[in-house]
Lab assay of single mutants.
Amino acid sequence: MLEGKVKWSNSEKGFGFIEVEGQDDVFVHFSAIQGEGFKTLEEGQAVSFEIVEGNRGPQAANVTKEA
């Protein structure tokens, strides 16, 4: 699992980007967020995730919010 911080997200469009130190930003779709209820990410929020190869390149999977 990698750790990063949410660079920005748009809940209306359903995606955002995660900033990882020393690496390119990672695309995240809201379907990759683990948990119940409305899935949102806040700018600056710490997250853990895996990287998978998506249709348009690397993207985050199994995203969990850190406490």
Score class of each variant (00 low, 15 high):
L41K: 01
K65Y: 12
L41T: 01
A32W: 06
E19V: 09
G37V: 08
I18Y: 01
P58R: 14
E21L: 12
T40N: 09
G35H: 06
G16L: 04
L2P: 02
G22H: 04
N55Y: 15
F38P: 15
P58G: 04
I18W: 00
I18P: 01
N10P: 02
K39F: 09
A46E: 09
K13H: 07
N55G: 11
W8M: 05
S48I: 14
E21K: 13
G37I: 07
G22I: 02
E50R: 09
D24T: 09
V63G: 01
F49K: 03
D25F: 04
V63H: 01
K13T: 05
R56V: 07
K13E: 06
L41G: 01
I18R: 00
T64D: 04
G57E: 01
L41A: 01
K7Q: 01
K39P: 11
E42Q: 12
E43V: 15
G35R: 00
E53N: 11
E12L: 12
W8S: 03
F49A: 02
E3S: 14
E21S: 11
A61R: 11
V6L: 07
I51Y: 04
Q23I: 11
G54F: 05
G44C: 08
S11W: 12
Q23G: 11
S48T: 13
K7E: 02
F17H: 01
D24P: 14
S31G: 09
G57K: 04
A60R: 00
V26D: 00
K5Q: 06
F49M: 04
F49E: 02
L2F: 13
A67T: 13
E42H: 13
H29Y: 07
N10Q: 05
L2T: 08
G16M: 05
F49V: 02
K13I: 06
R56C: 14
G22Y: 05
E66V: 15
L41E: 00
G35P: 04
F17Q: 01
S48C: 14
E43P: 15
G57F: 03
Q45L: 08
F15Q: 02
D24N: 13
I33N: 03
D24E: 11
S31I: 04
A60C: 04
G4S: 01
V28L: 07
I51S: 02
R56A: 08
G44F: 04
M1P: 10
D25I: 05
F30P: 06
F17N: 02
G4C: 05
V28M: 07
A61M: 10
G57V: 02
V47H: 02
A46M: 15
F30R: 06
F27G: 00
N62W: 06
G4E: 00
F15T: 01
I33K: 00
E36Y: 08
A32R: 02
E36P: 13
K39R: 10
F49W: 00
T64C: 09
G35L: 06
G16V: 04
I51V: 10
Q23D: 06
V20G: 02
A46H: 14
M1F: 13
P58D: 04
V47S: 01
F38W: 12
Q23A: 10
K13G: 08
F30D: 05
G35D: 09
V6C: 05
E50I: 14
A67G: 13
N55D: 12
L2I: 12
N55L: 14
G16C: 06
G22S: 05
E36N: 11
F15S: 01
G35K: 04
K7N: 02
Q34C: 13
L41S: 00
V28F: 15
K7Y: 02
A32P: 05
A46T: 14
E66N: 14
G35E: 08
E3R: 15
G22P: 01
A67K: 13
H29R: 05
G37K: 07
Q45N: 08
E43S: 12
L41Q: 01
E53W: 14
D25C: 08
F38S: 13
V28P: 06
E66K: 15
K39Q: 14
F27R: 01
I18D: 00
K5P: 00
K65A: 12
M1A: 09
F30Q: 06
W8H: 05
A60N: 01
V28S: 00
K5E: 04
R56L: 09
H29C: 12
E3W: 14
Q59Y: 09
E53L: 14
E3A: 14
A60Y: 02
L41M: 07
G16D: 00
K5W: 10
S9F: 15
R56P: 05
V63M: 03
H29K: 04
S9K: 13
F30V: 09
K7D: 01
L41I: 07
E66I: 15
F49H: 01
Q23Y: 14
D25R: 02
A32D: 12
K65T: 11
N10W: 07
S48L: 13
S48E: 06
E42L: 12
I33G: 05
N10T: 06
I18A: 01
V52L: 07
F15H: 03
G37S: 09
K5N: 06
K7H: 05
E50S: 09
E3T: 15
N10D: 11
T40D: 09
G14C: 12
E43L: 15
E19F: 10
G44A: 04
V28N: 03
F30G: 06
E50K: 08
T64M: 12
F27T: 04
A67R: 12
S11K: 15
V26Y: 03
V26N: 00
F17W: 08
F38T: 13
N55C: 15
F38V: 14
H29T: 03
S31Q: 07
G4H: 00
E50T: 11
E3Y: 15
V26A: 00
N10G: 03
S11Q: 14
E36S: 11
V47G: 01
V28W: 15
H29L: 07
G57D: 02
L2R: 11
E42R: 11
N55R: 15
K5F: 10
F38L: 13
G16T: 02
E43H: 12
F17S: 01
S11G: 09
M1K: 15
G16K: 00
I51W: 05
A61S: 09
E3V: 15
M1R: 15
V52H: 07
G35M: 08
E53A: 11
V26C: 06
V6S: 00
N62Q: 06
F30T: 06
G16H: 03
A61P: 00
G37N: 08
K65S: 09
F27V: 01
I18G: 01
E42C: 15
F17T: 02
S31E: 07
N62K: 10
Q34H: 09
N10S: 11
E53G: 06
T40K: 09
G4N: 01
V26W: 04
D24W: 08
M1G: 07
K65I: 15
G57H: 04
G57L: 02
F30C: 08
A46D: 08
L41Y: 03
Q23M: 15
E66P: 11
F15Y: 14
E53M: 15
V20K: 03
A46P: 09
V6H: 02
S9L: 15
E53K: 09
V63K: 01
G54I: 05
S31D: 08
Q23R: 14
K65F: 14
D25G: 03
D24F: 10
G57S: 04
S11E: 10
